[in-house]
Design a protein around this nucleic acid. Structure first.
Lengths: 359, 359
DNA sequence: CTGAAAGCGCTTACAG
DNA sequence: CTGAAAGCGCTTACAG
């Protein structure tokens, strides 16, 4: 066993060679067209150097025999892998339940597949493993660029990617992205809008169940919550940290509702925690929205499955992913790109919010 | 513009070349170790042909300079891409909300990353696009094998993969997998167990909200439901087809509950529809489980977020993915593999099922 | 046990 | 406008 895990390569290789069906190459096309391999390459890539008649003949043959360029050979001569990478550092149970990532991936895919770029996915256990994956991908030339999710304050991944000069787009911000490109949305503004909405309904004691501490957007929301709470003169504006899971969301809710002077409204940092909070409130005999108003961040279809349906802060996540992909492809092409501000999440009032009942 | 979309390649390539940081190659290692490139290759791959002392020296140098083998070069000489593919053919909104796929991917990843295999993901619009992706991947030698999800009756993808001799593992069955390897679970048995449980509670009118028609497991469950219904002598056993979305699940539920002689229990083909069904029942003023018992297939964390929590049919989906990955890696190595039967889903009774209240 | 060389399938200067 | 050739970074027979 060697120190990296490719010792079995030879087995698969031999077998693949024996078993493989013959794939057409540019040599096959060249032979049939009576030209050189170089000419075939120029023709198929839309480069000058072949007459239009020859080009058409070559393209026709390529289509006829179902030619696809060997991606390894292209990568080896050209230095682009035609693939980008996404490393996700969250436990499986959270990945599964949060619609965010799959929606993001759907949007990313739309842009990538239009350009025949592949998406290479890797689930990692912790930030160190994620950094190791970036170094390996870079060394292997396996990807031309990467998406960076779950940006943290002073994120250690940023300087590594800068050092490697691996094109990258940070999904998150603003700030703490170093010289990397990014797409971000103004969470602070969305949170303030939500709080003003609740205050207008008559709420004076508003709580927040936050996401994972240390994530930049958690910190940004936390800061905005405190500041807006003071500005709006709330009696109470308490944040309880959580971790996006239903269990923790339920626990945080119990803590908030069990205390004296309980809040009349809670804002949750994701939809899963909000749904868990709703169940807790109902369990405790509190009416939603009569006794407690609930707002969920991330307006996925889940929010409309509950009774009552949840008022939520939503935006188009597939579009967010598409923007990130477009940024990354531009970075790979070497174009100058910076921070792209995506739409701010907007509030969709549903049945889970109302004026607080007089105490 | 050419007929496939790689016309811009040259731009990225040039830029990458100018910008790229120098990556170490086996030539660098050979120079520093004073041996040939061939010797370096043998040493790093654990092949015979170098003395143990030389091997250790080479490995030490490789580690020191942070060497990673260029995956394109390996693929080009060895014919294995060290990557496998997963094409998903479902609309984004369903992909996002169903925990199944992300959990499956998590499990697959665990096996793959231990062997430094990459997972290439592609979201496709329809079965034709999916088949085109397989043909392209094969032609590009981009992947060494693929996972096939959402198996259909007489699935058109099966003969294509057989023709290409592309190693594949079907996630689903039994049957309709042609000569391809597969992992499957006995859904019929799980459904029968559930029905017997409901009958034991006293239910005589049981309905089912089914998944997408045409999917093999939908058909298998449908057949088992009818047969068991007859065997158990139910007064009523009606299946309403649906599509896994909350909206359709809600509509199907309204239809079932609005009719005369409404069922006292409903089994849903996924958790999302079950949650939607619960909300509909509550909206209509029916008590769950008093007036209506609800069972969800796919016991994700979502099922414990509702009030009451849902009785569900669950199994370890990450493990299912891990088994599929192990099968696929074996197929790539050329080992003979067939159908692997995974654990049968088991029922976890929670608050959403009880004896029906006397009418 | 080790070295020199061919080859994987492309792309791209460089000659004609 | 076209052809012949070098090169990308590996792996692997084939000689010594």
């Amino acid at each position: 066993m060697t120190w990296w895990a490719w010792s079995r390569g030879s087995v698969g290789r031999l077998v693949a060679k024996e078993r493989g069906v013959k794939r057409p190459t540019i040599a096959d096309i060249a032979r049939r067209a009576g030209v050189s391999k170089g000419a075939v390459s120029y023709a198929l890539n839309g480069q000058p150097g072949v007459s239009e008649a020859t080009r058409q003949r070559i393209i026709a043959i390529a289509q006829e025999i179902g030619f696809n360029p060997n991606s390894a050979a292209r990568a080896l001569s050209g230095a682009t892998a035609n693939a980008v990478g996404l490393a996700l550092c969250r436990p499986a149970r959270i990945l599964g339940i949060e619609p965010f990532f799959m929606e993001l991936i759907s949007g990313v895919e739309g842009e990538l597949s239009a350009r025949s770029y592949a998406l290479t996915l890797q689930v990692v256990a912790d930030p160190d493993a994620e950094i190791a994956v970036y170094r390996r991908w870079w060394g292997e030339r396996r990807v031309d660029g990467v998406f960076v999710c779950d940006l943290r304050v002073d994120d250690r991944r940023v300087p590594v990617l800068e050092e490697l000069q691996l094109p990258a787009v940070v999904i998150g911000g603003p700030g703490h992205t170093g010289t990397l490109a990014s797409v971000w949305a103004d969470d602070a503004a969305a949170l303030v809008e939500t709080m003003e909405y609740l205050v207008a309904l008559g709420h004076r004691r508003i709580a927040r169940v936050g996401g994972l501490p240390g994530l930049l957007h958690t910190e940004i929301r936390g800061k905005a919550f405190v500041e807006a709470g003071e500005r709006l003169g709330l009696e109470q504006s308490l944040t309880v940290p959580s971790d996006y899971t239903g269990e923790e969301g339920a626990r945080a809710t119990r803590r908030l509702l069990g205390a004296a002077g309980r809040p009349t409204a809670i804002i949750y940092d994701n939809d899963v925690m909000a749904i868990a909070g709703l169940a807790v409130a109902q369990e405790m005999g509190l009416a939603v929205p009569g006794d407690l108003s609930i707002v969920a961040w991330d307006d996925s279809a889940l929010c409309q499955l509950t009774h009552p349906p949840l008022t939520a802060l939503g935006r188009d996540i597939p579009a967010y992913g598409a923007h990130a992909a477009r940024q990354l492809l531009a970075a790979i092409e070497g174009r100058e790109i910076g921070a792209y501000q995506d739409e701010t999440a907007h509030l969709t009032p549903r049945g889970s919010t109302a004026a607080p009942s007089p105490a």
